[in-house]
Simulated scan of single mutants.
Amino acid sequence: MPQHPYQDIPATSHWRKAFDGMAPNQIELVGDFKFKLSRHDKVATAGSCFAQHIARHLGRDGFNFFVTEPGHAIGSPDIKKAHHYGIFSARYGNVYTARQLLQLFDRAYGSFSPTEDCWLNASGRPIDPYRPSIEPGGFSSKEELLRDRVQHLRAVRTMFEHLDVFIFTLGLTEHWRSAIDGSVFPVCPGVAGGEFSPDKHVFHNSSVNEVIAELREFQDKLGQVNPGAKIIFTVSPVPLMATMEPRHVLVSTVASKSILRVAADQLEREFSHIAYFPSYEIVTSPFSKGSYFGPDLRSVTEAGVEHVMRTFLAHATEGGTGGHAPPAAPGSGREQATFDAQAHAIVNVMCDEDLL
């Protein structure tokens, strides 16, 4: 029999063998992860809405979720959550794009100060254009907003300088920019607050080359303030809420996620301290048959989140329990009903994009 390289590839590298006899919730798309998180590592998170699940599960499994902006000690957990404390490592809200992440770093270290520094919401109260949802109802005054921003950016600096691992979930390529200074917003001006002006605000959809360049610049700047930092990129599986491109929102979703996935792959190939984790593939791949999305075809179910985090903890951490065990196949009618309810339960996350 002729010899060829494909005869010796592992089963996971062959489509039929990779899925043969496997239940969907037992399939793991990760083998030898590039590096592993220990329980002593300070793990910081940022990114799109889906990134909130990573922080929640890391803390639940006893890992060191690194929070540098925890809120006042006397505040209740519910109040802190409503004000976006502890959802990410600092109170920056959703960071959807590579450009927005790079901008956050530059603002924290004083190398960039956006011209547009305050919006008013529908009630006339000030809100922060770069984290419009973090203060329910808005700030009491612009002075309070500016004071809060100073301590917030201080917390961001502390995070970058002292984290061991930074997990960033890439969410979007489409975004709105200031035509004046190029600053980027997490949501279109006029949606959560502020006033949209075609003379002041421009739509931009980043190319793969732009995303790669922005991620390279970010990792370089992070390395300057924290030489030992490691980075894990993921891509959010959550589809776009809306697109400004003249095409179907699903087509824009596939284009956007493909660009982000290629960029993450390129960075992982280039740098030994950067790894990629396939949360996007776990949720969206054919083996799940769409069961990891809710009735709106967009919200990720608890079963999907559990599969992602079970795989992450099992392969990307030292001593992780792997999360909850996969649910057993249902038997009786009552067990079937319970199984279906758990599989379709939607995990609530705070998401600026939902304002659209």
Rank of each mutant, 00 (worst) to 15 (best):
residue 263 A to L: 07
residue 349 V to M: 09
residue 337 A to D: 11
residue 271 F to I: 02
residue 204 H to L: 08
residue 251 V to G: 00
residue 4 H to I: 03
residue 12 T to H: 15
residue 83 H to T: 11
residue 331 G to L: 06
residue 184 V to T: 15
residue 241 M to Q: 12
residue 194 G to I: 02
residue 165 V to Y: 00
residue 18 A to R: 14
residue 34 K to R: 14
residue 327 P to W: 01
residue 77 P to A: 09
residue 202 V to T: 12
residue 267 L to P: 04
residue 110 G to D: 07
residue 256 S to Y: 02
residue 197 S to F: 06
residue 278 P to E: 07
residue 242 A to F: 10
residue 46 A to D: 07
residue 276 Y to D: 03
residue 109 Y to W: 09
residue 103 Q to G: 03
residue 116 E to T: 15
residue 268 E to T: 15
residue 129 P to E: 03
residue 170 L to I: 05
residue 330 P to A: 05
residue 26 Q to L: 15
residue 41 D to Y: 08
residue 53 H to C: 05
residue 285 S to Y: 09
residue 352 D to I: 00
residue 35 F to T: 11
residue 9 I to A: 09
residue 138 G to P: 03
residue 143 E to H: 09
residue 15 W to S: 08
residue 248 H to A: 14
residue 343 A to Q: 10
residue 347 V to W: 01
residue 273 H to R: 15
residue 69 E to H: 14
residue 128 D to C: 11
residue 31 G to H: 09
residue 308 V to A: 01
residue 220 D to T: 14
residue 188 C to W: 00
residue 228 G to R: 15
residue 151 Q to S: 12
residue 127 I to V: 15
residue 1 M to F: 09
residue 215 L to R: 04
residue 201 H to S: 04
residue 277 F to E: 02
residue 311 T to E: 06
residue 352 D to L: 05
residue 195 E to H: 12
residue 268 E to K: 13
residue 60 R to V: 01
residue 339 F to H: 15
residue 52 Q to C: 11
residue 251 V to Q: 12
residue 202 V to L: 13
residue 281 E to W: 07
residue 234 T to D: 00
residue 286 P to Y: 08
residue 146 L to A: 11
residue 188 C to Y: 06
residue 224 Q to M: 09
residue 13 S to P: 00
residue 33 F to N: 06
residue 126 P to W: 11
residue 22 M to H: 14
residue 149 R to V: 02
residue 328 A to T: 10
residue 220 D to M: 09
residue 50 F to T: 07
residue 54 I to N: 05
residue 5 P to N: 05
residue 243 T to D: 10
residue 180 I to A: 13
residue 99 R to C: 00
residue 195 E to I: 14
residue 71 G to R: 02
residue 248 H to V: 10
residue 205 N to A: 14
residue 292 Y to E: 06
residue 351 C to K: 01
residue 229 A to M: 11
residue 175 H to P: 01
residue 226 N to S: 07
residue 162 H to T: 14
residue 194 G to R: 03
residue 353 E to Y: 10
residue 265 D to C: 12
residue 57 H to T: 12
residue 316 A to K: 03
residue 24 P to K: 04
residue 263 A to I: 07
residue 317 T to H: 03
residue 140 S to A: 13
residue 330 P to E: 06
residue 150 V to D: 09
residue 49 C to F: 08
residue 96 Y to K: 01
residue 126 P to L: 09
residue 300 V to W: 03
residue 95 V to N: 10
residue 8 D to H: 11
residue 276 Y to P: 00
residue 150 V to P: 01
residue 312 F to D: 02
residue 18 A to S: 12
residue 134 I to W: 02
residue 6 Y to H: 12
residue 340 D to E: 15
